[in-house]
Design a protein around this nucleic acid. Structure first.
Lengths: 138, 138
DNA sequence: CTGTATCCCCACGGATACTG
DNA sequence: CAGTATCCGTGGGGATACAG
């Protein structure tokens, strides 16, 4: 039953489905950034907004709501004037930080390689004009 | 310089940006599934298509092209009739399998918890009708 | 300060048909 | 078998304005 190529454990048979779950949550444009920032400690709304480059108010709210909904982030309102709302990772949210960090390290490590591969790929001549399509002078 | 709450290493200052890179590649609907399947060994196009539930021909092609472009997947054409094309993870692609698996394990482990959190969140009464809006009988 | 509500664009991805 | 081409719907996300 030995095969000619290395086999990983079924590291990806049903786990695949599980990954999609996480990615559906964390794969969007902003969740990781938010979780990342909160990984450094609780933060207020505008503090987050300022520290995450390019995020809109709307998206920050939506992202935070999503994370809160899934129990990854807690939201604490201090009923003062002006209002003060603090967001923080929950215990669950912090455990997520680990695999995400692993991913980020992989990314940091291989970013250059990937960009190079991409560059090469893009620089390839298109396969061929296929059949010469009789470009008859109209 | 001690603060009142646990601090993670800057696990997310610039790494954040790196993560986005990976997620832009792997965060889409199908990449992880494809990489996952290929983690079990090389496969042909339709073999992949059949083994990944719900993927369309178009998306399989696009996903494979993307992964190939980034040097994560190799594409080998056997010029026979009918054509035979084999896809496989490159070395780089295999290293990606690791952090992805970590993520999938996290997902598998916490899926139930998250769904429960989600259920509770959704079952919450809407904050309030705000101010009673004088629903005067028109 | 911390949001919600609207409008609007466009990229992702499905369905289908055609080709080497 | 292994794609490419086309059409099209949906929703993610930006910009802006308004509200408690």
């Amino acid at each position: 039953m030995t095969l000619g190529h290395p086999r990983f454990p079924d590291a990806a048979s049903e786990p695949c489905l599980a990954v999609r779950d996480v990615l559906d949550r964390v794969g969007d444009t902003w969740s990781v950034s938010v979780v990342g920032r909160l990984g450094c400690g609780p933060m207020r709304f505008n503090e987050l907004k300022r520290s995450i480059d390019g995020i809109s108010q709307r998206m920050l709210t939506l992202t935070l709501r999503g994370l809160e909904r899934d129990g990854l982030v807690s939201r604490t309102v201090h009923p003062t004037i002006p209002p003060r709302v603090e967001y923080a990772l929950t215990l669950l949210g912090r455990t997520l930080l680990e695999p995400v960090t692993a991913l980020s390290q992989w990314a940091a490590l291989n970013r250059a390689t990937i960009q190079e591969a991409r560059r090469r790929y893009d620089a390839r001549p298109p396969p061929e004009p296929l059949a010469v399509v009789e470009d008859k002078a109209e």
